[in-house]
Design a binder for these strands. Structure first.
Length: 407
DNA sequence: TCTCCACAGGAAATTGGGGGTT
DNA sequence: AACCCCCAATTTCCTGTGGAGA
């Protein structure tokens, strides 16, 4: 048997469905692109400096691609008029502090710095960064993707735009483009940062089903052979994603996976059945990947809820969830954290959509309290945990109890 | 209506760890 | 080696909220 049979001709150019594929046009975002370009225009008109730009919207809305497309074209214009443009792309994905952010920028512009520096003072790092920027000179755009990771540690966002007037920069003109998934991030910025950074703001509203359909259609024409994909598959992928967060990334992922499944089964068409299958698998994978990404304390907290759920005792107050957590933690010999910490963990699991935590009030004990419930399928959760071995004993207990009750 | 209980969640201090510079 | 910098996770302390029951 040929394990790697890919003889059916489903895909023509599959890369158009990959995460890092950047389309050269974004017809659904024309007006946003214009607004972005507006911020970059001053140097083209004469010797002005660019505006700082703040771009926000949920994930999968084409923010990063939009900025990329706009900067690409800007680069061409600069070349025509013979000005220097340097673009520094920095992802703040794994960055939580100003210190780390400066370090991350340095890894991009200081050839000898390969990984984020440690053990030096923030002041030194800042100096190194500004010196280096001055050496580069000309117009520089620093794109800070996922800027919301900085939280309230936002001094950097003040420092860079003000660097010229503070005398930190002599030669270079630096503009900052901040890209944020978090719509409320802007509100949390300190007033001085808001003034300087949010010179121009562009918001990317969620795509609707029509937008998503035309986006998918364009990708489909590149990625698949003609007449391979059932029109209903496109419509459904778009509809599901539109109902969720309006994310093009998600819609494309559905379509891609459906195609892969069809190809894998040796079929020549992609139909709705494949799409349903694709969605099931993607959801399962998401559960697994979010669980394996948790710390073991978070996992133990999640298991406490799973255990209670298998006994039919959910939803529960944190008090009882904590008691269950404590049993589990003790049984596997890990540190037992305080109630306060577990409360935070439950909230945290809520933001990952693994748990639902609601504030309630009243009841026999009075006052207000958190009520928590598992937000994912118990079987999916147990499958995910079967791949770790830290909680083996606990999993077995939950599993046997669960099967008895479902029989 | 008043007091009290139970708990949420903010803020600050602590802990333990990784890594500089001199 | 002594001393300093940065950090994430957690604990400690504390203020605030809202129904229960007198």
């Amino acid at each position: 048997m040929d394990l790697y049979d890919v003889s059916t001709s489903i895909f023509q150019n599959e890369v158009a469905l990959m995460e890092d594929w950047v389309p050269d046009q974004l017809p659904e975002r024309e007006s946003e692109l214009k607004d972005i370009a507006f911020a970059f225009k001053p140097p083209l008109r004469g010797n002005g400096s660019m505006h700082n730009l703040f771009v926000y919207g949920k994930s999968g809305q084409g923010k990063t691609a939009g900025v990329e497309v706009a900067l690409q074209q800007l680069g061409e214009k600069f070349e025509e008029i013979g000005k220097d443009l340097t673009i520094i792309n920095v992802s703040l994905k794994d960055v939580n502090t100003e210190f780390q952010a400066v370090g991350e920028i340095l890894t991009k512009i200081e050839p000898e710095t390969n990984s984020r520096p440690k053990g030096v003072s923030l002041g030194d790092l800042n100096r190194r960064m500004f010196d280096r920027l001055d050496e580069i000179g000309g117009h520089i755009v620093i794109v800070l993707d996922e800027i919301d990771n900085l939280g309230t540690d936002d001094d950097l966002l003040y420092q860079i735009p003000r660097a010229r007037s503070n005398g930190n920069l002599e030669e270079a003109y630096v503009a900052v483009v901040g890209i944020s998934n978090n719509l409320r991030f802007r509100e949390n910025l300190s007033a001085k940062v808001k003034d300087t950074l949010c010179d121009i703001e562009v918001s990317f509203d969620p795509y609707d089903a029509n937008d998503l359909r035309s986006i998918l259609k364009r990708r489909e024409e590149i990625a698949f052979h003609e007449d391979v994909v059932d029109g209903e598959v496109i419509r459904l992928s778009a509809a599901w994603a539109a109902n969720d967060e309006g994310s093009a990334r998600q819609a494309i992922k559905y379509l891609h996976r459906a195609g892969e499944i069809a190809s894998d089964q040796g079929e020549d068409d992609v139909v709705v059945d494949h799409l349903h299958d694709a969605r099931d698998r993607i959801e399962k994978e998401q559960v697994i990947s979010s669980i394996t990404g948790l710390t073991s304390q978070d996992q133990a907290t999640l298991l406490a809820l799973a255990s209670l759920e298998s006994k039919g005792e959910t939803p529960v107050r944190t008090k009882y969830a904590y008691a269950e957590y404590k049993k589990i933690a003790e049984s596997v010999g890990m540190n037992v954290l305080t109630n306060r910490s577990i409360r935070d963990k439950l909230r945290n699991l809520d933001t990952y959509s693994l748990v639902i935590a609601n504030e309630k009030s009243g009841g026999i004990e009075g006052g207000k309290y958190l009520e928590c419930d598992l937000n994912i399928d118990l079987d999916d959760l147990l499958t995910a945990f079967n791949e770790t071995n830290r909680f083996d004993g606990v999993i077995d207990t939950i599993q046997s109890g669960h099967h008895q009750s479902t029989l």
